[in-house]
Amino acid sequence: MTTPVLKRATRRELHSPRTAAAATVLVVVAIAAVYAGVEMVLHLLRLDPLLVTPGTALEGAAALPDIEAKPAVIAGAVVVAIAGLVLIWLALTPGRRPRHRLDMPPHSVVVDNAVIASSSAEHIRHELDLPRGAVVVGVGHRSADVTVRPVPGQSVDKERLRAVLKGELTRYGLPAGMSVRARVMRPDEENRER
């Protein structure tokens, strides 16, 4: 595979399409169009409207700028403005999937964040000689968190814990700018959480 094709394929795996948002907008527009069509057909057949006749709806929309600011009109305007801002945000920002591209030239490897977290937790467990289930790691797009619950009598240095996780993430080829947070829970903290 050529490099541009590989880059494009990797980008498609890392970024999610906006299919759900586009489908939602299309369904809403289709429902509005079907409703308007039904109201027009009912009006042409001289039957009672479902909600309002098309002429009354157009007159009401034309009169909106002249009426006083009623709470319902203001609430409707706020809802429409928020929906518009959300749609603009969705259109301009790329969606991120919970995955990372590992730096292994000339190949491109895309790995799920949960796999990275699980592997890192196992490495930390072996490195610090901790029992199974004592290490929990969470990996995000720009940060990683590690929580350790040592057995009573065992001490774990928070800075060493952070360094081990940072070294493991660097070994995978993840961005060096990822923030790493470490937390060591004591048995008394565990009892307070329950």
Rank of each mutant, 00 (worst) to 15 (best):
A21F: 03
V184W: 00
P175C: 09
E13W: 13
L165D: 01
V136P: 00
M1E: 12
P17R: 15
I116T: 03
M185W: 09
A117Y: 00
A23F: 07
R132Q: 10
T19Q: 07
I124K: 01
H43S: 15
A61M: 12
V78G: 13
R194H: 12
V148E: 00
P106V: 09
P150L: 00
A32P: 02
R160G: 01
V180D: 06
V135L: 02
H100I: 02
V27F: 13
P54L: 11
L130T: 01
D112A: 14
P175L: 03
A57N: 03
R142H: 14
R99P: 04
R11E: 13
R99L: 06
T24Q: 09
A75G: 11
G76E: 06
A163W: 02
A32H: 08
M104D: 11
P54R: 07
S118C: 00
K7Q: 11
H100L: 05
V5G: 05
A83W: 03
L58A: 15
L102E: 06
A23P: 01
R12H: 11
Y35A: 10
I31S: 06
R142G: 10
G167H: 10
V86A: 13
V180C: 07
S143H: 13
L161V: 13
S119D: 10
R162K: 15
V28M: 09
P175K: 07
R46C: 01
V180M: 08
A21W: 04
L87K: 00
T10E: 13
E127I: 00
V137I: 10
L51T: 08
V148I: 15
P4G: 08
A63H: 10
R194E: 14
Y172G: 04
I116G: 04
P106Q: 09
L58I: 12
V180P: 08
H15G: 00
D66F: 15
L174T: 11
V73M: 08
V180W: 07
K158A: 08
A77K: 01
R183G: 02
V180A: 05
V86H: 04
A114C: 00
L169D: 03
I88D: 05
P49G: 06
L90T: 06
M1W: 11
R192S: 14
E68P: 09
R186G: 01
V115W: 07
V41I: 15
A72Q: 12
D48G: 03
L47C: 01
L161C: 05
D157V: 06
T3L: 14
M1V: 14
L165K: 05
P105Y: 11
V78K: 11
P65Y: 04
R132E: 08
E190L: 15
L174S: 05
L44Y: 05
T3M: 09
T19Y: 06
P131K: 01
A176T: 12
R97E: 10
V5C: 02
V110M: 10
L174M: 06
E168I: 01
T19L: 12
